[in-house]
Simulated scan of single mutants.
Amino acid sequence: MTEPTDSSVNTSRLDVRSLPKVSLHDHLDGGLRPATIIELAAAVGHQLPATDPVALGEWFRESADSGSLPRYLETFDHTIAVMQTREGLTRVAREFVEDLVADGVVYAEIRWAPEQHLSGGLSLDEAVEAVQAGLEEGVMNAETAGSFIQVGQLITAMRHADRGMEIAELAVRHRDSGAVGFDIAGAEDGFPASRFKDAFTYLAENQFPATVHAGEAAGIESIVDALVHGRALRLGHGVRIAEDITVEFEADDAASPDEPEVGMVSIGRVAGWVRDRGIALEVCPSSNLQTGAVASFGEDIETHPIDLLYQTGFAVTVNTDNRLMSNVSLTGEFELLMDTFDYDLDDLLELTMNAVNAAFLPLDERAALSAFVTEGFNRARG
């Protein structure tokens, strides 16, 4: 945590929701409104585990917390099922933006896998266009209401499929109409980024940026693979980079029991490479606990390595992953970190600026976003 300054504010009175935020890791199919799922499911004849919005929302949250991977994955069966038409995709995308605005997000990169949304007869390009239409409607609605948000699509390929090059070409085709980056998602362990190395080479040849899910379900080798073969500019989650960091505590009999232990930190070669080059980590605190990504460190937020990574200089960003399944918002994730690690306004600004600097935007647009965010945080200082 940064040292308090004269410009710090009392965090107990801080309105985190009003702060301008940046979201880099948020899945479209993981952020639907329960009421919308029910309406769209009725229209397409899809059976749900509950038809009351409150009960359905509870079912999603309980399934995500069940400890059962099959039940967790089942949640996405239901959201994806209602996102197979142009109308469904556009509505979900529009509401997604509206919910981000309500959370104080001013810039967001929304990731989703078009290849999972073709069973209703849409082509890949038509699916991307339908989502873009919804995103633009959401932005226009925000402007009409006096709010501001900028959004872009992260076009995602599924790791277990063999459509990497096709999806990479899709992303590049839409680079001037909403697509800002490429991602691979799905089962990380056993499906390395090297399976898509030709696609990543194509993206690099076309100067199109990529983030790669790595360091969540698999460890350091997966991160290295994402950096080498995926040419990743950011790491989706990336929290298991902490496995390449060693903290050794020495017993000090003279120390007061109320004083915190001080440890010697050793940064491994891979962790050093990621930290020293400012490769951003798209950390999703609550989701990481649910999926067991940080189980080797502990089972609760107090043992999550996000603070270790932040304190040792990594480009940590804070994200939600799947807002419906994890029952979270970016506001809530920031508040969780404040409560757990005693972060203050300066810490929230630094974490947000990490996201600004890692955004897949041209330099001049990042500079403008930086100024906008800084101004918003300065207003919070009073």
Rank of each mutant, 00 (worst) to 15 (best):
N357Q: 12
E221V: 08
F341Y: 15
A157F: 01
A130I: 11
S8F: 00
V92N: 08
M353I: 06
P70I: 04
G31I: 03
V318H: 00
R275F: 06
T317D: 14
D344I: 00
E333V: 03
S68C: 07
D52W: 05
L14V: 02
D258Y: 08
D225K: 14
T85M: 08
R323A: 04
T85W: 04
L227D: 10
A280P: 11
P257T: 08
V16Y: 00
R175W: 00
P305V: 06
T201M: 08
R234D: 04
G230R: 09
L233F: 06
S256F: 00
L361Q: 04
L56Q: 11
R240V: 02
H25N: 12
P49N: 09
L32K: 01
D300L: 03
V22D: 11
V172A: 05
M325G: 08
W273D: 05
R13V: 06
L14I: 02
Q132Y: 03
G376C: 09
L154D: 05
S63H: 12
V239T: 15
V22W: 03
G57M: 05
A133V: 14
T246E: 15
G272R: 13
E3G: 00
P114I: 11
A218M: 02
V92M: 06
I306P: 05
L89F: 08
E3P: 01
R195E: 14
E143C: 03
N319K: 09
T340R: 00
L19F: 07
S329N: 10
I110H: 07
V172L: 06
L308Y: 14
M165P: 03
A161R: 15
A127D: 12
H27Y: 10
G272W: 11
P20Y: 01
D244N: 08
G272Q: 12
E216H: 12
A113S: 15
M83K: 01
A293G: 07
F148T: 13
H27E: 13
G238P: 07
D344V: 00
V316P: 01
V262W: 01
D77H: 10
P257M: 09
G88V: 00
G121C: 13
G263T: 04
L24F: 04
A108C: 14
G134C: 07
H304E: 05
A254C: 02
A108Q: 09
S12C: 01
L118I: 10
L369F: 02
T317S: 15
I267P: 09
H27K: 12
A35N: 07
E95H: 05
Y107R: 10
D347S: 00
D162M: 02
F341T: 00
V172K: 03
A293H: 13
D52T: 07
T36E: 12
A113W: 05
A255S: 14
E62Q: 15
R234Q: 04
S66P: 09
C284T: 13
A271F: 11
H160N: 08
S266L: 07
S123H: 10
D26R: 09
E169W: 01
L324K: 03
D244Y: 02
V97Q: 08
Q84H: 05
P20V: 01
I155S: 10
A145H: 08
I306C: 04
R173F: 02
A130N: 13
S147R: 14
D189E: 15
E87H: 06
T85N: 11
H160W: 12
A368N: 13
H160P: 04
A295N: 12
E302L: 02
H304V: 04
V356K: 04
V328M: 10
P49K: 10
F297S: 10
